[in-house]
Design a binder for these strands. Structure first.
Lengths: 112, 112
DNA sequence: TTCTTTTATTGTAATATTACGATTAATAAA
DNA sequence: TTTATTAATCGTAATATTACAATAAAAGAA
């Protein structure tokens, strides 16, 4: 059977997309990478290895996860790869997640 | 060794918090639960079993994950448990994640 | 060409996640 | 008290994730 695997077929495309983007941010190393890119605009893998302190293959793995989710782009430049945020995808994420995040805090009167 | 485990000690408290909250939203079933609670204010486990279509222990497991992350609260009422969003925690999440989500889209000039 | 630099990939060990059947626990109803 | 009703927990199978050593690949420097 397909145990251990998420049943994506019973959810909407939108729900799967939202979950995928949230999942991509669901590791502190990937949060740190995004924060670094926000500050520096671009970076190469080696920068992050020094900054974060995980092994190079581990950083490379996290970069791949962010790239697969579409949150970053990578361009090969000589021996290194230049990474940056994919702002178009971040706009999509923002529009999908803002209905969840922009909650009315004073709704908690009708709570259990 | 501690292989397979996230090295939380090399990250800031804030980075770990952000990752934990994002991770809690990183599954379509948990997105669906949050969306349901946004629409209905409160619900019990059985409502979600009917609405989502996963087995009762699976829904219960996802509710526990959201509760552990602090995103929902649960109050026992007779034989059932009444769940709702924890708006205070959502405020924390909003303030932590908004620096990431409120990006200037026209920054992509200095990208690679 | 040979050596260096940089990153991606492969392989693997340890742990975490997902899903569900079976069972338990706890309250309500008969 | 006996019988539902409801949800949590336990156990477990299948898969996914995390971390890193070792290696490969690809471009630049000597």
């Amino acid at each position: 059977m397909n145990m251990g695997t998420t049943k994506t077929e019973i959810f909407t495309e939108q729900q799967n997309q939202m979950a995928q983007m949230a999942k991509a941010l669901g590791h502190p190393a990937r949060i740190a990478i995004v924060q670094y890119l926000l500050k520096q605009d671009t970076c190469i893998c080696g920068d992050l290895v020094l900054e974060i302190g995980l092994a190079q293959p581990t950083i490379s793995q996290h970069l791949k996860a962010l790239k697969t989710a579409g949150l970053i782009k990578g361009n090969i430049e000589g021996t290194s790869t230049c990474y940056c945020l994919d702002y178009e995808k971040w706009d999509v994420m923002k529009s999908l997640l803002s209905p969840l995040l922009n909650l009315e805090t004073d709704n908690n009167t009708n709570c259990c």
